[in-house]
């Protein structure tokens, strides 16, 4: 277990270094930051001063080392566009994205697993067929279309839910949360569905097919032969065995929920990091883009680590590094 953890953490560090290198390379090869910062009329002295301030007059390896060092201290430089530390900007925006991603993930998990189990157990029911057909729509429609469609239906036509922004937020120790106000919660509904729908249908279809597979196994037949209750068989024995591939999928997908919240955030004018990223790309704000890259990579790495640990929790066969072949 410990060895496994250390191995995984070493891998994670390596991944982060590579990503950091890519992010750092952007400074070197995407445009000339000095020209962007000082403007057209600057003198050579101004340019040199700015280059020194940004630290780009040093040799490449030194710059990279400094970049990594600064990044470890949470310093990702100064945004070209806004002129404030990148980290501050991200910290302001991160709660919005994380809350949205969390809601979307919960939505996808709860409804995806629920619908998946239902459609597997009632394979020929009318509701199952309807759910399977609808899930095709969820899988095939692009996110922005779903978002716009939801806005049209629930905001424009029915006027039930807000179409943009986070509503009122409450500051809880520097974390601006939309969970505590009614308008904040109402604002979450449409973006959550938009962001989570694709994942939900994916999970639903995966759970359904895995569940059907598991229900055919010998140990389920044996569980029936032992006279266990249907409830125990379906939710205890079958569902638990179904969850392993779901955890894998969710691990990959949770990272992308954050990474690809960009589209949803743009559609709903959601003040999160994705929206910030789009603005930064338009302004060629390299430090901002680089930090976003590192941030998303860090998120993926952490989620994958958690997923590996979750496997450990669910599947005892993985825990037997030392205990195998006792029989």
């Amino acid at each position: 277990m410990i060895a496994f953890l250390i191995r995984r953490i070493a891998q994670a560090v390596l991944v982060m270094l590579v990503v950091g290198f890519v992010a750092f390379s952007m400074f070197r090869f995407v445009g000339d930051p000095v020209s962007i910062m000082v403007g057209q009329e600057a003198t050579a002295a101004d340019r040199a001063a700015m280059a020194e301030r940004l630290g780009i007059d040093r040799p490449f390896p030194v710059q990279f080392a400094r970049f990594v060092g600064n990044a470890l201290n949470g310093d990702f430089g100064i945004s070209y566009r806004v002129g404030r530390p990148v980290m501050d900007l991200i910290q302001e925006r991160l709660p919005a994205t994380l809350e949205l991603a969390l809601c979307a993930a919960m939505f996808a998990l709860v409804f995806g697993i629920g619908a998946g189990v239902y459609t597997a157990l009632h394979r020929d029911g009318a509701l199952s067929h309807a759910a399977m057909t609808l899930s095709l729509i969820g899988v095939s429609l692009p996110t922005f279309l779903i978002g716009i469609g939801l806005i049209f239906l629930f905001s424009v036509e029915l006027n039930w839910l807000p179409s943009f922004g986070r509503g009122q937020v409450v500051d809880v120790g520097g974390w601006k949360s939309g969970f505590l106000t009614q308008s904040g919660l109402r604002s979450l509904v449409l973006p959550t569905i938009t962001l989570g729908l694709f994942q939900m249908t994916l999970i639903m279809r995966l759970v359904r097919s895995e569940m059907l597979e598991v229900l055919r196994t010998d140990y389920i037949k044996f569980a029936r032969a032992r006279g266990l209750h249907d409830r125990a068989i379906h939710y205890g024995h079958a569902l638990k065995n179904t969850l392993i591939p779901v955890i894998t999928l969710m691990g990959i997908r949770l990272g992308s929920l954050v990474a690809f919240a960009i589209i949803t955030e743009t559609v709903f004018q959601w003040p999160g990091v994705g929206f910030l990223f789009v603005a930064s790309v338009q302004a060629v704000d390299v430090p901002m883009m680089a930090s976003y890259l590192v941030l998303v990579a860090a998120f993926f790495v952490v989620v994958n680590l958690v997923v590996d640990l979750a496997y450990y929790r669910v599947d005892p066969r993985l825990r037997t590094d030392h205990a195998t072949a006792r029989s």
Partner: peptide, 11 residues
């Protein structure tokens, strides 16, 4: 049942 390897729930 016939197959002891698959008749028990592995989890």
């Amino acid at each position: 049942f016939q197959d002891p390897l698959t008749s028990l729930n592995p989890l």
